[in-house]
Amino acid sequence: RAAQGRAYGNLGNTHYLLGSFMEATAFHKERLAIAKEFGDKAAERRAYSNLGNAHIFLGRFDVAAEYYKKTLQLSRQLKDQAVEAQACYSLGNTYTLLQDYERAAEYHLRHLLIAQELADRVGEGRACWSLGNAYVSMGSPAQALTFAKKHLEISQEIGDRN
């Protein structure tokens, strides 16, 4: 049964990489059920991330957000800050797709704080870029400028000419 869970996960990933998102979703749901059966929180967390990602490409941003929230919740339980940061970043982007810029900014800010804590300059730069965009959309150009400047500073530091 445990091997079956891993096989479902691998099949889900393979369909995802082939761009078959419906099939990927079906396999990841099976994987999720087995992870729950075993109380395997790490596998459950992975399944939620994979399900969130697949729903982005199915255009179901609302469903993706719910899966990413489950990922976030479990990453905190598992005390995995890198995954927590990634979940916040995914949620920020998902709420941008849902055009809920305030909530997007909330998650991008949470991502920024964790990236700073982890001294992840690349992550910090991405968070600043996203926050600049969110504040522009919210009609707050002064705050957007602060983050755009920070984004420039970090990009120069890490040599990201793009």
Binding site: N13, L17, A43, R46, S49, N53, S90, N93, R126, N133
Partner: peptide
């Protein structure tokens, strides 16, 4: 409005490009 929308899409599109190849392996 259109310009703002394009700016918005830029950072999200970059994320989606990365996401396409992002799988949580077993």
């Amino acid at each position: 409005g259109q310009r703002l929308h394009l700016m918005q899409v830029d950072s999200v599109q970059r994320w989606m490009e990365d996401l396409k190849l992002m799988t949580e392996c077993e």
